[in-house]
């Protein structure tokens, strides 16, 4: 499991987050909508997981360990991301 709950206020994404992690992450975000998401230890994010992050729009603790996601993905909103 690469999605873990650290405590009531934070959820951690670690290492390679696969599609199966999306369900677990969603459940945790439903249970504690105010929890912060720490995705610094994550180095590869699957689209399904990214989609949950985009849909739930939690507060994130970054930068995301997946540099590509950090660069290109709008976090928690559907706004476009500017080129560097």
């Amino acid at each position: 499991m690469t999605v873990t709950r650290r405590d009531a206020e934070s959820i951690v994404l670690e290492g390679t987050c696969d599609a199966e992690d999306a369900e677990a992450l969603l459940q945790m975000l439903i249970e504690t909508p105010v929890a912060r998401l720490d995705w610094r230890p994550c180095n590869q994010l699957h689209t399904a997981v990214a989609q949950v992050v985009l849909a739930a729009g939690p507060k994130v603790q970054g930068p995301c360990g997946d540099a590509w996601v950090e660069k290109w993905l709008p976090q928690g909103s559907s706004d476009s991301r500017r080129a560097p």
């Binding site: 909508p33 990214a50 849909a55 290109w72 476009s80």
Partner: peptide, 25 residues
């Protein structure tokens, strides 16, 4: 050489109804 990316996701979602295995992006 990606120069710009726009990701569209459904604007407002009730998390309880959200299906994580349907790609909506």
């Amino acid at each position: 050489d990606l120069l710009a990316l726009r990701v569209e996701s459904p604007p407002s979602v009730h998390l309880a109804d959200f299906d994580p295995y349907t790609c909506q992006l």
